[in-house]
Design a protein around this nucleic acid. Structure first.
Lengths: 125, 125
DNA sequence: TTGGATATACGAAACCTATCGTAGATATTT
DNA sequence: AAATATCTACGATAGGTTTCGTATATCCAA
């Protein structure tokens, strides 16, 4: 299966991931906090996502319940693969260094990364 | 200016970035190594990219020469911003750790990242 | 100099995304 | 029970992307 959600679909998925399971209204309320959108627009998008197999839904009651059919981690992995091949010439270190350079990480984050790198080294041996 | 090249446009830009300056045929030859496409399709895409202001071109001779109007680094920065906000909840360290986890970097790359992190620490102080 | 190769320009079609209005079903409130 | 609110379904439209055929201009070789 190919996971390639559109921009709008990702906005919706973020809400679903956060809540685990939710209604169209849940998503809509969340989205309208930061941008304008008609309710039926959100509904339609979620119906399309269902058609595409991005989400599943429970239709036993009038108000349907939606769940994601893949995890945020899978979406992250996909997104990384894509930009690695399209703009980073496949170089992971370029990507990492760029990311650290432009969005300064907190000391805690840096520590987390360092200890990750160390663990990494040991596995290599 | 807003830099948001489409998928196809990025494929073309990769060739332009690599060559610095090139013709439609240059790009086309490169693209058809990995996928099928008609020559006029590539031409049209590049014309549209020119209309959008993504590239400039020298039309003094019959065969036009195209150049990118922004760098690969800018595209990288843009791509990172986008996936950070759409799938990484803004967490740079999550992104970095995911990237290192799934695409194993070479020892050299890891060293490069480590020394980058150290430089980073010093600046912080 | 005439025919073939190569270039650009232009327009149209197929497809996808995003948006929303309207209709009809179901629930809720008064 | 009637009015109101809420939900899904179903188009339809506007806009953007991708694809390619055809026309026209230009260069080059026989």
């Amino acid at each position: 299966m190919d996971i390639k959600p559109t921009e709008s679909e990702l906005e919706i998925l973020q809400v679903i991931w956060k809540m685990g399971q939710c209604t169209v209204r849940d998503v809509h309320e969340e989205l309208t906090k930061t941008k304008d959108a008609g309710y039926t627009t959100t509904l339609k998008l979620m119906q399309i996502m269902h058609d595409k197999g991005l989400v599943e839904r429970d239709t036993t009651s009038k108000t349907h319940l939606y769940k994601a059919l893949f995890t945020q981690e899978q979406a992250q992995s996909n997104a990384l693969d894509k930009i690695l091949s399209t703009v980073f010439k496949g170089s992971t270190s370029d990507l990492v260094i760029q990311a650290l350079g432009q969005h300064r990480a907190s000391p805690d984050e840096i520590d987390a990364i360092k200890s990750f790198l160390n663990k990494f080294d040991q596995h290599k041996k």
